[in-house]
Write a protein that binds this DNA or RNA. Structure first.
Lengths: 360, 360
DNA sequence: CGTTACAATGCATGCGAATGCAAACCAATC
DNA sequence: GATTGGTTTGCATTCGCATGCATTGTAACG
């Protein structure tokens, strides 16, 4: 008869020991193992294991019988035990930061879809700040994940520590300067160029920029590319203010741009859509300006609310779905074949004309 | 000398075998185990184990030495192996559906924060549709999660199967009719009553409702409570149209309300904020009405964009943070003590007056 | 110094499934 | 019926760590 380990409650809990409650629970306490099934079916444990492995060496008859019995007994293979011996957890760590933004949830959703298509589960690490990453990384290691998708900043050392442990990492929409890493990004430079070109063609000459935090590689790329393109057109004076990628930053940003020069710019290029929305609202409700007649506002990302009738933001939409797909392909390839060299995939964004800017 | 299993690439992969690439990798291939550390430190494996267990029986001197050596060797305890023997994975499954909505990402974010505060990791199951839950549940079982947080519909049978395996489940903002389950919800009934009372007090008499999908328990509660309260006031004629909780549904909803009766209602009660926003936009841009002068619009949830200046939705904000906290407390209690009876916690929402409705 | 009590350590085992190897089985062929 | 080749099956071991138990070390006390 199988021994039954009686679940113990930590002694620190309910110290004034309550009289043991009779749990009105359906019998079947201990989890059913492959041994249990084997015994019941009169076969060996290994046979049971093989019956659950696709392509495992087992006759059709046995396969069917064992599976039926397993079903009856409520047996489910233990993925933890399997991982231990196969050295594959089928777990992918996703490191992500601002779930309260509008962009990342979409990313996460797509990543999740594609991950399960590849037979991988997602171990989520949602960082409140992009700060305490180190502790998190330790957790990631402990769980023997097959790979890591990083949608947050990682330091060189952190990337290095994954490499040492042979855990492939793919960055999402960011990368590391001077270190070859796997990454899938949307082409910010190209997107910025398109926006600026169309804005310039519409006759705009005075540009302001509402940038994101300095430590955002993507945000900085957008800003730099915008300014670079403007310089090509001979526009040298570009006012830049900074914010934190959120609505309030966008709103405050425009007011600050107003204070910076005598006249407001004709265009506000915002480092993302949410800031663009904040900026539009500042224009309308704080400064009583019409958008796009008095001020053109553009953003980046193409998040859901940017299409709302109230704002219809002119923006560069990221192909988040295809980016997620590429991310997983890249990662799964590296998991299957650790020797593959680092690779970046840059996907083009798509201009959404919206109605928050006059384009030429 | 430790044998070294050479990583094998599944034969099904890159069939036209590429010549083995010389991996320019830093040495240290196989993962470092507690045995390795033990040998290096000249102690037993169990000693190493105890040095990493808080409160484990080990002298301060050894603890320090072992930890230092472990650090040097790049040792990280294997959570998978640990889980196998302790029968605690420190994994919590979170079942969630619409990550592209505005509400659930916030929920997920809060759940994640509180989970890590309890030393648990989140295994994320983001369902594209609320459909293929059964396969997902199987995965949840396989990973031996300590508990489940369900922010999706589960059938009676599904709940039952968790119970059979002694995996505690806590529902988030939903529950199961007629079956006692653990759940944390926001008080929809009370919220609806407050909204209606204030709207009625402002003199509104003609009410329309833009409901969510029929299969959403929360959505239906909001609608029923709204109508019930109106009935108490003697308002019997309430037009109801349905949508899918998204922006377009809200927008379409108002237009449909317009067609349903000769006159538009004075109030549109929407089953969530995003629909309220769509409804406001329909009023302004499709029907050229002023909000709230010509039409009062209210929603539920208090998601981020509902506070944007452009909409300032009058709504009942859910205390998502405290709900997440309660969810984890409830769950952790059940994990520690499986005998605890099912429990519901209903937290009150908070009226955000906004400016999308005239209140009395 | 001997005895006791407790802390620190090692040994051996087990968690549940996967897998190399050998044994058993089966069918086809000579 | 014996031989061969292939398929099924079982046995034994392994993955990395935790833990009960026995043993050793250390300190305190009489």
């Amino acid at each position: 008869m199988p021994r039954r380990k009686n679940r113990r409650v930590p002694d620190t809990f309910n110290a004034p020991a309550v009289a043991p409650i009779a749990v009105p629970d359906s019998g079947a306490r201990h989890p059913v193992t492959s041994h249990d099934v084997a015994r019941r079916a009169g076969v060996s444990q290994s046979a049971v294991s093989r019956c659950f492995k696709p392509g495992g060496s087992a006759s059709a008859k046995m396969r069917e019988r064992v599976r039926r019995i397993a079903e009856e007994m409520g047996y489910t293979p233990n993925a933890i035990a399997r991982s231990l011996i196969t050295r594959r957890s089928n777990l992918i760590a996703v490191l992500i930061s601002n779930l309260t933004s509008l962009y990342y949830p979409e990313v996460l959703s797509e990543l999740s879809n594609h991950a399960s298509a590849h037979g991988e589960r997602i171990l989520l690490f949602a960082l409140p700040q992009e700060s305490d990453v180190d502790q998190t990384i330790d957790q990631v290691m402990q769980y023997q994940v097959d790979g890591v998708i990083a949608a947050v900043r990682l330091s060189r050392e952190q990337v290095e520590s994954f490499k040492r442990r042979n855990i492939p990492v793919v960055f999402f929409n960011r990368y590391l300067q001077d270190v070859p890493v796997n990454a899938v990004c949307c082409d910010q430079v190209d997107g910025a160029r398109i926006l600026v070109s169309r804005l310039y063609a519409a006759g705009h000459r005075r540009f302001g920029v509402i940038a994101g935090p300095k430590d955002s590689v993507v945000g900085e790329e957008r800003v730099h590319a915008t300014i670079a393109r403007l310089n090509e057109y001979g526009v040298r004076q570009v006012q830049v203010v900074r914010g934190g990628f959120d609505y309030e930053s966008g709103r405050r940003g425009l007011r600050e741009l107003g204070k910076l020069a005598q006249r407001l710019p004709q265009v506000a290029v915002c480092a993302n859509d949410v800031m663009a929305i904040g900026c539009i609202d500042a224009a309308r409700y704080d400064l009583k300006l019409r958008v796009p007649e008095d001020l053109s506002v553009v953003g980046f990302d193409g998040v859901g609310p940017s299409t709302w009738e109230s704002h219809r933001v002119t923006t560069i939409r990221q192909p988040v779905g295809r980016m997620a797909e590429a991310t997983l392909t890249l990662l799964m390839d590296r998991i299957a074949n650790p020797g593959l060299p680092p690779e970046k995939r840059i996907l083009a964004g798509q201009l959404i004309e919206g109605k928050s800017a006059r384009l030429g």
